[in-house]
């Protein structure tokens, strides 16, 4: 079992510690209340990488939006380093399934967004080029988003997040819309970036293999209203291999928890 202890033994992290306590949330839809999250409890150690795995529409993305501070939970608490989250903050950055680059800005100006919003553009301009280099988009810095492929656009979105040196990176199915080859390449990229930057990472995905390849811990969510069915400790060093018998076994367990055990 690699757990909190093993995570703590890694190189020191400037990541954020996250605590979600007894969190419930619901949407108002045409007068009726639709529960999406039901009494979620979870804890992320600084620098840990955790995946939220579950069927689509189960409320995982809502959990990310709550952690990002874009919405306020109905009941329960979310603590970042012990402080309750009330509003969005550049230390916690959300990367969406769609790159959502601004079409009127070049790649470079899109990446500059966070620095510009906080008035740091003048003093820290060089960080833009560093971020572009990190995701391998230096040659495309003057391109407009419409000129990028899906994979490149998602890299640009990652650079736009990383330029702010987030302490918690929230990834909402960031590879969900990419073709399978690009996705495999981007998975290694995500691991590399996480290892370099030492942020805490919370990944929402419905790809079992992706969750097991990328994360220390995989939390399996049930159907809406979402609650955590099980926590799987992966306990393998990086780089991991898809055919590692331990991962294959974990994948089988995860699928069984999701009611798909017989389909693999």
């Amino acid at each position: 079992m690699v757990s909190a202890a093993a995570v703590a033994n890694r190189a020191p992290s400037n990541g954020l510690g996250l605590e979600v306590k007894n969190l419930s949330h619901a949407f108002e839809l045409g007068g009726t209340s639709l529960p999406v999250l039901n009494r979620i409890d979870l804890t992320l150690q600084p620098g840990e990488s955790v995946a939220l795995l579950g069927p689509s529409g189960c409320g995982k993305s809502t959990l990310l939006r709550l952690v990002a501070g874009l919405e306020t939970p109905l009941t329960g608490e979310i603590l970042a380093d012990g402080q309750p989250i009330r509003a969005p903050d550049p230390s916690r950055i959300l990367v969406f399934q769609d790159p959502t680059l601004y079409p009127w800005r070049t790649v470079r100006d899109n990446v500059a967004l966070g620095l510009q919003a906080r008035g740091l553009l003048g003093s820290q301009r060089e960080r833009i080029d560093e971020a572009l280099a990190k995701v391998g988009l230096t040659d495309f810095r003057d391109a407009y988003p419409r000129q990028l492929s899906g994979g490149m656009a998602q890299r640009a979105a990652l650079a736009r997040a990383l330029v702010n040196e987030p302490r918690l990176l929230l990834l909402d199915e960031p590879l969900g819309k990419l073709d399978s080859l690009t996705r495999i390449a981007m998975q290694s990229e995500l691991i590399r970036l996480w290892q370099q930057q030492r942020y805490t990472s919370l990944l929402v995905t419905h790809d079992v293999e992706e969750a097991l390849l990328l994360c220390d811990r995989v939390l399996v969510f049930g159907n809406r209203p979402a609650r955590i069915l099980a926590a799987l400790e992966v306990g393998r060093d990086y780089p991991r291999h898809r055919n590692d018998p331990h991962l294959v076994e974990l994948r089988q367990r995860a699928l069984e928890l999701l009611g798909l055990g017989s389909s693999w």
Partner: peptide, 11 residues
Amino acid sequence: AYYDVARTLGA
């Protein structure tokens, strides 16, 4: 989503 992006970046 454009607003969400900017808000999480501290706009």
